[in-house]
Design a protein around this nucleic acid. Structure first.
Lengths: 118, 118
DNA sequence: CAGAATCCCACTCGATACTG
DNA sequence: CAGTATCGAGTGGGATTCTG
């Protein structure tokens, strides 16, 4: 899922925006700071990551906690509702894992047939 | 899911393009013709429905059968792989049904707070 | 009947640069 | 550190009209 060679854009199942599912899985192990999220999600620009987090926050799936101090830091964590999304995500991942090869094969032969028709 | 008052665009879980999940559920009961699909999916223009069906066909989720004759007609039906998608879809639907109200409430209070901050 | 052609809008995503 | 500002490209969806 975090593999660049396996772009999730090919996956027929999506949760929220492009990065939402990844963000949720990154928060599975507990609260994470913005810059901590940027490590596994280094392909996401801060602006886009922020928007994704805001959307999740708006839906009550993620809670945003600001810790003021000398060096301010912000933590994001899953709410119970957000955590409950892990189950459908896991089901979707299992489906994709089981049918990924069939999907790729189907696309290949479809595209081949289309190319032959021209 | 087919309700206009419940736009699936608010649903955080999506399968394929905007109409894919609906198409799949329409095909659950057996093969359907293009114009039959257009009845429950009357909000979808033919072009968009065609594109959605083609995408599903490309992924091997739907099979397209052309019956030539005096009056030509085309039938679409789920492949076994397509049918297997019904399970993740059902899980997603169950999740949404269970958390829909929380989602709406969260959005409302988030938007209220945002409006108050300005 | 089952689409294809054309045009267009809105929105998402991303790159880059900047800031309290 | 945790974002915001700006700009640009690409994509998806839709309205309308036409066709083998």
């Amino acid at each position: 899922m975090f593999d660049e060679l396996c772009p999730s854009s090919l996956n027929p199942i999506r949760f929220g925006d492009k990065w939402a599912a990844l963000v949720i899985r990154c928060l599975e192990g507990g609260p994470r700071r913005f810059s901590e999220l940027r490590v596994p999600l280094r392909r996401v620009t801060p602006k886009v990551l922020t928007r994704s987090l805001r959307a999740l926050e708006r839906d009550g799936l993620v809670r945003r906690n600001v810790h003021a101090g000398r060096l301010r830091h912000v933590e994001y964590e899953l709410t119970p509702v957000g955590r409950s999304l892990l189950e459908p995500i896991a089901v979707a991942c299992a489906w994709t894992e089981r049918h990924w090869d069939e999907l790729l094969d189907a696309r290949e032969s479809y595209d081949d047939a289309a190319r032959h028709d021209r």
